Simulated assay, not measured.
Amino acid sequence: MTNMSIELDAVSKSFGAVEAIRNVSLNIGQGEMFGLIGHNGAGKSTLFKLMLGLLPASAGAVRVGGVATSSAQFRQVRRRIGYLPESFVSYDNLSGLEVLHLFADLKQVARAECGRVLRRVGLADAATRRLHTYSKGMRQRLGFAQVLLGDPTLIFLDEPTNGLDPEGIAAFYGILREAQGRGATIVITSHILAEIQDRVDRLVMLDAGKVAALGTLAELRSRQVLPSHIEVLMRPGCGAGVEAALAHLPGLTLKLDGDQAGIACAAAQKAPVLAALATMLVDVTIREPSLEDLFLGYGGHHASAD
């Protein structure tokens, strides 16, 4: 498959006196599922539009598949891109199939493909229904269907699971994994951080238009000194011995409630903590810092990353 990596080299974008993107450099590799998060006003939408070639950079260069988005040649690259905006809007008086026919014509894709794509997103039975009868989740799936037309090699998704139920979300990511398996590069933004944290290969956190953090979830955890949380249930009567058993381990935070204990510790201390309590344990739950924890630790101003 043709390489569809994305390169941003010292990219900035200003709107008058407002600098929305500030000296951003990053590379998104061919076949990656890449996450983009940040609080309101962090520059996510602007960065999306720069990578799509919908906005020109004020400084720096954006290249997709080795082609500058500012060049005339980018028109050919754009034909291999699928894009779902945060709010998918179409004509309410058209059926789902007619909407896809419209997009197929725009993308120069055979209309015969539309039925297959509708089946793939679970809308085959609603193909001939008018959009005004569609629920929010059905509209979102129709928007995803138009993304899939032509088997794009680069997919941009802005808050793609709005309105989807848990089953729909699972199916959505299953389809994305299939596209990734064929070599598609996927860039996704979501305000539901728990949803994407175990699904993206790498991610970038934007803060005030700048890169606050970039890497895999494991890499971000290693750079942020955030505690692991261990919840333990002891054998009856053993709760009183927990504090003494852990006395040789410095820097722990311990909360006791009868035979249950909550322990916050450095990642390197998890094994020593469990070894010290081994003879008392009935059950253990370990929670590592979530993407939301990391987002807040890196300076995110809201618990969501909308």
Rank of each mutant, 00 (worst) to 15 (best):
R182E: 14
G174Q: 01
D158V: 07
T133S: 09
G137A: 09
L176C: 08
I155Q: 10
I175T: 13
Q180D: 02
G137W: 09
D165I: 05
F156G: 11
G181P: 02
L154I: 15
A145I: 07
K136R: 15
G183M: 11
P160C: 03
R177N: 11
M138C: 08
Y134D: 03
A170F: 10
L176Q: 01
T133K: 00
A171W: 10
I188N: 07
R182H: 11
K136Q: 10
E159D: 11
L157D: 10
N162F: 04
Q140T: 10
N162K: 10
Y134F: 14
G150F: 14
A171E: 14
N162V: 13
I175P: 00
L148T: 02
G163D: 10
V187K: 14
G174M: 01
R177C: 06
Y173W: 15
D165A: 03
V147R: 12
N162H: 06
I186A: 09
T133Y: 00
M138W: 13
Q140R: 15
L148S: 02
A145M: 01
T161E: 06
F156S: 11
E167K: 14
F144G: 02
K136D: 05
T161K: 14
I155W: 12
L149A: 12
T185S: 06
G137N: 08
L164R: 04
Q180V: 07
G174T: 00
A171S: 13
P160W: 00
E159Q: 11
E167F: 12
T153E: 15
G174N: 01
A184P: 08
Y134H: 05
L176A: 11
L164W: 09
P152K: 07
I155C: 03
A170P: 00
K136A: 04
F144S: 09
D165F: 01
D165E: 06
A170M: 12
I175D: 13
A179I: 05
A184W: 05
T153I: 05
L142G: 05
A170W: 08
G183Y: 10
P152T: 07
P152M: 06
R177G: 05
L176W: 02
A145V: 09
V147F: 09
I175Y: 12
K136G: 04
G143E: 14
L148W: 09
S135V: 00
G183Q: 01
V187F: 12
G183H: 09
L142K: 07
D158K: 08
A184Y: 12
F172W: 07
